[in-house]
Design a binder for these strands. Sequence first.
DNA 1: TTAAAACGGTGACCTATGTCCTCGTTTTGC
DNA 2: GCAAAACGAGGACATAGGTCACCGTTTTAA
Lengths: 192, 192
Amino acid sequence: MFAEFENYIKAHAGVTNDEVELFRATAIEKSLRRKDSLLNQGEICRYKIFVCKGLLRTYRTTENGNEHILQFSPENSWTTDPESYNNLTTSVYNIDALEPSEVVMWTKKDFDALFEQLPKLKAYSDNLIQRNLYRTRDRMFFNQTSTAEEKYDNFVKTFPGIMARVPLHMVASFLGVSRETLSRIRHTQVRP
Amino acid sequence: MFAEFENYIKAHAGVTNDEVELFRATAIEKSLRRKDSLLNQGEICRYKIFVCKGLLRTYRTTENGNEHILQFSPENSWTTDPESYNNLTTSVYNIDALEPSEVVMWTKKDFDALFEQLPKLKAYSDNLIQRNLYRTRDRMFFNQTSTAEEKYDNFVKTFPGIMARVPLHMVASFLGVSRETLSRIRHTQVRP
DNA sequence: TTAAAACGGTGACCTATGTCCTCGTTTTGC
DNA sequence: GCAAAACGAGGACATAGGTCACCGTTTTAA
């Protein structure tokens, strides 16, 4: 499963064959079954996680036990709780697998060492974080100014394919609308 | 007005007296009257802005002309449109002054040069960006899971003092609630 | 100093969306 | 292969919060 990561990091961060070995040296590979968890609220998020295959989700629960999904992480994407990971604080998030998945992950100590050795990796990472911030802001604006239907349409456009891979109520949870509303919207659209 | 910045940067990023001069060399100081603008949508955001005094806001308009405030920037805080600033793309945001204000600002070219010369500045900046991301995520979660009243209470707690400095409809716009709803909430609370 | 604009409050009404429930179908895990 | 769980659809109903309209007060700018 390291192979997928290798392709990714060479293509995106300009890492050479030799340099890939540095990643391999400290990588932890892990296979997950559906519902297997990588992080539970209250724990410290010890790893930076790259998804080689499958699909993870990050969610958070309200006091009354409602789950809200903040992020889907399909193959070729990263996930972690940056706050917990960076500061070794306990996390309020949960990360688990929605499909059988394969991940590669590193501890902060090991990944920081990679940053030291590979400045271009640090630059690439900074870039990802920045982009993440833009998108999160955008999403917030969109959430505040759109109807449930616009949110749904936008989701389908922005994350093509995810819709087909996860149950409806999870998309609802991601968008912050009720399952029922989403179900109705979708059926109104069958024949517009 | 550079004095306020000097205090701030020494205290927060561990910059020495000598190093402060590097900042001064390329800083652009500017006084703003109420309603003066630093960025209009469609323009490129050329500056990283530090607010020495006063209060700025960042807002965005929907297609039907509705204004949504994304951020208040009081004294001792930074603002810019990072996306536009970093990539020289046109911005969808507007930044203007809600009070007579004083700012110090740098072009990307000049500020990047500071990063080169002062690694600790880069580290501090990375930190701010990370924190910004945590908080934006948090705010999004909160927005999705809270009632208008909870949003208002949270705002008052999170941004003490801002409430007293801006008109009600701007807080409403920040929270994504109508002015009327906020007005009612607030009056219900006079005698709880 | 004064006219115009901005602001906050409030009533009346409307509607998008949430909540609760039931039912048939599909998926899953043993 | 089968029992149990998860899922999607849809009806009935409730409601938070939006929209519109009006008014008196305060602030602003010329």
